[in-house]
Measured scan of single mutants.
Amino acid sequence: VFVDDHLLEKVLELNAKGEKRLIKTWSRRSTIVPEMVGHTIAVYNGKQHVPVYITENMVGHKLGEFAP
C-alpha cells in the first residue's frame, strides 16, 4: 500500500496529539489507511483543495477518487 511519507507523518502526528484539523495535500495517489479515519483531508483536484472527510468505508481507496 502506498502513502506519501509527508502525509502519513502529518496524520500520525495529529493522532498522537489527539487533534483533528484540516490537512492539505497534493498527493491524490496516496491510499487511504485506517490511521486517517476521522480526519478531514483537503485533496487538490488541479484547481482547488476539496475537503474530504475520511470514513471507514474509504480505507483501501485512493484520495484522488474522492476529489473529482
Rank of each mutant, 00 (worst) to 15 (best):
M58D: 12
E13A: 10
L12E: 06
V59Y: 15
L7A: 01
D4E: 12
I23G: 01
R29C: 15
T31R: 06
I41F: 07
G38W: 08
L7T: 01
I23S: 01
G18E: 07
F66M: 09
R29T: 12
K10Y: 11
M58V: 09
A67C: 06
N15S: 03
P68V: 10
L14I: 03
N15H: 02
I32K: 00
Y53M: 12
V11A: 01
G60R: 09
H61N: 11
V33A: 05
A67N: 05
E35G: 07
T55C: 11
E19N: 04
V11C: 05
V52S: 06
Y53R: 11
P34H: 13
A16W: 05
N15D: 03
L7S: 00
V52I: 13
L12Q: 10
A16F: 07
M36C: 04
K17G: 05
E56Y: 14
E35P: 14
W26L: 09
V37F: 14
V33I: 15
L14S: 04
L63Q: 00
I54Y: 00
L8C: 05
G64W: 10
V11W: 01
N15A: 03
L8S: 02
G38R: 08
V1A: 15
N57Y: 10
V37Y: 10
H6D: 12
K10M: 15
N57L: 14
P68T: 11
V11F: 03
R29A: 12
P68N: 07
K17N: 09
H39V: 02
D5W: 15
A16Q: 12
S30C: 07
W26N: 15
V1W: 12
K17Y: 06
L7F: 01
Q48R: 12
N45H: 06
V37P: 02
F66W: 10
D5K: 15
L63P: 00
G60A: 12
T40I: 09
F66N: 03
P68Q: 08
I23R: 01
Y53S: 11
M36N: 00
H61Q: 13
T25C: 03
W26H: 15
T55Y: 12
R28W: 06
M36S: 01
Q48K: 11
Q48L: 14
V50G: 04
I54S: 00
E9L: 12
G64E: 12
A16K: 14
A16M: 12
A67M: 04
L63M: 06
K24T: 10
K24V: 14
L14V: 02
L63D: 00
Y53Q: 12
N45C: 06
Y53A: 10
D4C: 07
S27I: 07
L63R: 00
N15F: 02
K47P: 05
P34R: 13
H6K: 14
H39D: 00
I54W: 00
H6P: 03
N15P: 00
M58E: 12
P51N: 10
L14K: 01
N45K: 06
V33N: 04
A67K: 04
I54M: 10
N57A: 14
F2S: 04
V50F: 10
Q48S: 12
F66A: 05
E19S: 06
P34F: 12
L8V: 03
E35R: 04
R29Q: 13
I41D: 00
H6N: 08
P34S: 12
A16C: 09
V3K: 03
G60Q: 10
V33S: 05
V11D: 01
H49I: 02
K47N: 11
T40M: 11
E9A: 14
K62M: 11
G18L: 05
D5I: 15
D5A: 15
T25Y: 01
W26R: 13
G64M: 12
E65Q: 11
V33G: 03
F66Y: 13
H39I: 03
L63T: 06
R21L: 14
N15C: 02
G46I: 05
G38F: 10
P51F: 04
G60E: 08
G18S: 06
E35H: 08
A16H: 08
E9G: 11
Q48V: 14
V50S: 08
Q48E: 13
A42N: 03
L14N: 04
V11R: 00
E9M: 14
L22I: 15
K62G: 08
G46E: 07
L14R: 01
V3R: 01
L8T: 02
L63G: 01
T40V: 09
P68C: 09
N45D: 13
V59R: 10
T55R: 12
K10S: 13
M36Q: 02
V3E: 04
K62L: 12
I23Y: 01
R28T: 07
E65I: 08
T25Q: 00
K62W: 07
D5N: 15
S27H: 04
S30L: 03
M36V: 01
D4V: 02
T25V: 01
K17D: 05
V37G: 05
K62Y: 07
M36R: 00
E65N: 10
E9S: 15
D5E: 15
G60M: 15
I32H: 00
N45G: 05
G60S: 11
H6Q: 14
E9R: 14
A16R: 13
M58T: 08
E56V: 13
V1S: 14
R29K: 14
V50T: 10
Y53G: 14
V11I: 14
P51T: 08
V59G: 06
A16T: 09
S27D: 04
L14H: 04
I41W: 01
V52P: 00
R21T: 12
I23E: 01
R29I: 15
V43E: 00
T25M: 00
V1G: 14
T55G: 12
E13P: 00
E13L: 07
R28I: 05
G46Y: 11
N57D: 14
N45M: 05
V37H: 07
V50I: 15
K17F: 06
H49K: 02
V43H: 01
A42T: 02
D4P: 03
V3A: 03
L8I: 09
E13Q: 12
T40P: 01
I23W: 01
K62A: 09
G46L: 09
H39N: 02
E13C: 10
I32A: 05
M58Q: 12
V43D: 00
G18D: 07
Q48P: 03
V50E: 09
S27T: 03
A67Q: 05
L12A: 08
V37I: 15
G46W: 11
V59W: 07
L22W: 09
L14Y: 08
V43Q: 01
E13W: 09
L7P: 01
V33H: 06
V3Y: 04
G18K: 07
K17S: 11
V1I: 14
E9W: 10
K24H: 12
T55W: 11
Y53C: 10
L14W: 04
A42W: 03
E35W: 02
K10A: 15
E56I: 11
G38H: 09
M36E: 01
I23C: 02
I54K: 00
K10G: 04
L22R: 04
R29N: 12
T40Q: 07
G38L: 10
A42P: 01
V37C: 11
L22G: 03
H6L: 14
N57R: 09
D5C: 15
H39Q: 02
E13I: 07
R21Y: 12
Y44H: 11
G38A: 11
T40K: 06
H39M: 02
V59H: 05
T31I: 08
K24Q: 07
